[in-house]
Computed example of a mutant assay.
Amino acid sequence: MPTVLIIDDDERLTGPMRFLLEAQGFAVLVAGDGAAGLRAVIDERPDVVLLDIMLPAMDGWQVCQEIRRFSQVPIIMLSALGMELDRIRGLELGADDYLTKPFASQELIAHIRSILRRVQWDTARAPDSRLVIGRVRLDLAARRAYKGDVELALRHKEYELLSLLMQQAGSVLTREQLFSQIWGTDWMGDTRTLDVHIRWLRQKIEDDPSAPQYIQTVRNVGYRFAGAREAT
């Protein structure tokens, strides 16, 4: 039975959400502030976190950052803030998804189940293996990336994107495939966020980002990571 942790101080919302989720077969935990939410992530190890932004003392942005310091648990941010910049900010801080209040109950359930399916798919991909292409190395079990002997400081989405590209090295991944796997099929944000993440990755792994050796652009299609024989 998957466990969902709700971090939200609005009991008018958390009560109905608990009832809805339990009726769908989830175990539910509720934390009324950021500090309690962080303790619950550490102690209870939930499968999914539903994180409100407007929290007392420590807001959802800060809580998301703190969770990402020690856990890769999937995070769905919930907020009445509907601005596109707020959505992008949440994803850049490490959230996996973002829902704007008010949302339909079945929409919430669909997002949770979609994330759980992606986690199961990731787990099935030989999590103890390591990938080495040229001087770039991924430790999939530890979720760490290296260039040579230097560990790379990657944002959550940067790591996810690099991992996906390297696991399909030599093959072209379309923009649609990348968005579906990294941001979800329901992503409605600025599609340029993919190009921004590619630029950030190139700055970290390429010797010359303006002439990339590893992450190659396939014009009008998408991107590919160089195959093992291409990278030196």
Rank of each mutant, 00 (worst) to 15 (best):
D9A: 01
G15D: 12
F19T: 13
A23W: 03
F26S: 04
A27V: 15
V30Q: 08
G37M: 02
G37E: 09
R39P: 09
A40R: 04
V41F: 10
V41G: 04
I42M: 11
D43V: 06
P46T: 05
W61G: 09
E66W: 01
R68W: 02
R69F: 00
Q72N: 04
Q72I: 00
P74R: 01
I75D: 12
I75H: 09
M83D: 15
R87M: 14
L91F: 00
D96A: 05
D96N: 08
P102G: 03
S105I: 06
S105M: 10
Q106Y: 03
A110T: 05
A110M: 07
I112K: 05
D122T: 08
P127L: 06
R130Y: 09
R130D: 14
R135D: 13
V136D: 03
R137I: 07
D139P: 02
R143W: 11
D149N: 09
L154R: 09
K157P: 05
Y159Q: 01
L161C: 01
Q168A: 13
V172L: 03
Q177P: 07
G184R: 07
M188I: 14
V196R: 14
H197P: 03
R199I: 06
R199L: 04
R199Q: 08
W200P: 02
Q203H: 01
D208Q: 07
S210H: 13
Q213S: 13
Q216L: 14
V221R: 03
F225M: 13
E230D: 14
A231E: 13
T232S: 15
